Computed example of a mutant assay.
Amino acid sequence: MATVQKSVDSSSLAEVIDRILDKGVVIDIYARVSLVGIELLAIEARVVIASVDTWLRYAEAVGLLKDDDPEE
């Protein structure tokens, strides 16, 4: 018969924050409030949580950074 082992690994807050800053987190929200077909309120937000190094690495990869030197 196979036995099941229970793992009790816990992470400290510092480890969780380090992982979030290393990998990054994006929260993309779009909310709309309308009444009888009339839009009363629209909220669109994008929250990015990452270290500066991580953001610069991925922003450059997807073309979010403008190149100031036209000769390159």
Rank of each mutant, 00 (worst) to 15 (best):
D68Y: 12
R57L: 10
D18C: 02
A59T: 00
R32W: 06
I43Q: 07
A2E: 12
V62H: 03
D69M: 10
V48S: 07
S51W: 05
K6E: 15
V4W: 07
V4M: 06
I29Y: 04
V62F: 10
V8W: 07
A14F: 11
I20P: 00
L40V: 01
D67F: 05
R19V: 03
A61K: 15
E44G: 14
I38D: 06
A61D: 07
I17C: 04
E39D: 12
Y30A: 10
L35P: 01
V33T: 13
K6T: 15
E44I: 07
V25S: 08
E15S: 12
V48W: 02
A14K: 10
K6W: 14
D9L: 06
I43Y: 11
D68N: 12
L40T: 01
L65M: 06
V25G: 03
E71W: 11
A42V: 14
L64V: 02
D9P: 03
I20W: 03
E44K: 15
E71Y: 13
T3S: 10
R46K: 11
S7D: 11
G37F: 08
M1V: 12
K23W: 00
S51K: 04
D53L: 05
K66P: 01
L21D: 00
V48Y: 04
R32I: 14
D69T: 09
E15P: 02
A42Q: 12
K6V: 14
I20G: 00
I27C: 05
A50P: 03
V36P: 02
S12D: 00
E71D: 10
Q5P: 05
V4T: 13
A50E: 03
W55Q: 07
V48D: 04
V25T: 12
A61L: 15
K66R: 09
V48N: 05
I20K: 01
L40N: 00
S10C: 12
E71C: 07
S10V: 15
D53I: 02
A45D: 05
V36H: 08
A42F: 07
M1A: 12
V16E: 07
I20D: 01
V48R: 06
E39N: 07
T54W: 03
E44P: 03
S7A: 14
S12C: 01
I17R: 05
I43V: 11
K6G: 09
E60K: 13
E60I: 03
R46W: 00
E72D: 14
G63R: 00
K6A: 13
K6D: 15
L41G: 02
Q5C: 09
D18T: 11
